[in-house]
Simulated scan of single mutants.
Amino acid sequence: MIKIYNRKTKSYEVENVAGGKYIEWSYGSPIGKSITELFVKKKLFTKIYGAHCDTRGSIKKIPAFIKDFDIDMRISKKRPEEFTSFNDFFVRELTEDARPIDKNPDILVSPGDGRLSAFENIDMDNVVQIKGLTYSLKELLLDEKVANEYNGGTCLILRLCPVDYHRYHFVDNGVCLESKKIEGHYYSVNPIALKNIPKLFCQNKREWSIFKSENFGDIIHVEVGATCVGTIIQTYKPLEPAKKGQEKGYFKFGGSTTVLFFKKGMVKIDKEIVEQTELGFETRVLMGETIGKRSE
């Protein structure tokens, strides 16, 4: 059972996990772990399932998914019957007014929908993955020079579940450099997996880029793939000006994670989010929602 903090109600909610029993078995039982290591984490498994989700035959999964996870289709640009595949539904675009964005340059907004954890004053050699498990930023990026610049900074981990809106966005005006791709495995990014796979983010397929923002300095954007996320699509154009709230890219089917790193002294995350992270709880947020402000 995974509990998520709801900022609006000031209470905790139990997350409705897609394939929850399967994930618990895959990462919590000896047999499940063995099968995960031999097959599930491999590219072929994800590639095969991902290809199926691109076919017209996968459309039949959409109505049940909407019903089971109470997906609000009123904010989708397309109606359920207009999607051409399950992946087309999964990466659905939202209406213009679905995710209001505070344009105040001092305000930091969430890059996407999901469950947020925030860590301040990070040690680049011991960035927290989940309580009790850490990883090195230079292992994540495979670039020690860049990693060294973020010691003492802030790390935001936004976990996207299969039920979430799966497009991610820029948190400020600025220019994003070319994305660097790192091949890896396809472990689930569910907390159950994070508790059982050391340095999971450093093992999974991922892409990262530096976003030169106008108000929060150079931000590292990391997109981490997961089981059944065979493709990370970057839709932004490198070196071209980007606006706050503009789409950066999207994940195809599966749970995924976006990680942001800020340099020391650039941002102050809302106290409520940091406190919940320290207690071991993720905070539910929506794209464009205020999550912090520029440091004074």
Rank of each mutant, 00 (worst) to 15 (best):
K271R: 02
M266R: 10
K263S: 08
F262L: 07
L286P: 02
V259A: 14
L279S: 00
Q246H: 07
G254P: 05
Q246L: 09
V259C: 12
E289W: 06
E240A: 15
F251H: 12
K293H: 10
T258N: 13
T235H: 10
I269A: 02
F262T: 06
M266P: 00
F253G: 10
L239Y: 15
R284H: 13
Q234D: 14
Q234N: 14
Y250I: 09
Y250T: 12
V267M: 05
M266V: 13
A242W: 11
K244M: 05
V274C: 04
G280Q: 01
K293A: 09
M287A: 15
F253V: 15
K263E: 11
Y250L: 11
G249T: 11
K243H: 04
G255N: 03
D270Y: 02
E247A: 14
L239T: 15
G292W: 05
K244Q: 00
E272Q: 06
M266Y: 08
T257R: 12
L239R: 15
P238V: 11
V259I: 14
G288C: 10
V267F: 06
G265S: 03
L239S: 15
G255E: 04
G254N: 06
M287H: 11
L279C: 03
G280E: 00
P241A: 15
K244L: 06
E289L: 09
G254S: 09
D270M: 04
L260T: 09
T283I: 01
F281S: 01
T257W: 10
L286D: 10
D270Q: 02
E272G: 04
G280P: 03
Q276A: 03
V274Q: 01
Y250D: 08
S256T: 06
M266D: 09
A242P: 00
E282R: 10
F261W: 03
G255R: 08
R284V: 07
T290K: 13
I273G: 03
M287V: 11
A242K: 14
Q234R: 13
K268L: 00
K293D: 07
I291Q: 01
E278P: 00
K237R: 15
E289Y: 04
T235Y: 11
R284F: 12
K268S: 05
T277G: 00
K237L: 14
E282T: 08
E282V: 02
K243Q: 07
K244G: 00
E278S: 01
I291H: 08
T283M: 05
G255A: 02
E247V: 10
E240Q: 15
G280I: 01
M287R: 13
F261H: 01
E247N: 07
T235Q: 09
V267S: 07
K264E: 11
G245C: 08
F251C: 06
F261T: 05
E289T: 05
K243P: 00
T235C: 09
E240W: 15
M287C: 11
K248C: 08
R294E: 04
K268M: 00
Q246D: 12
E282P: 01
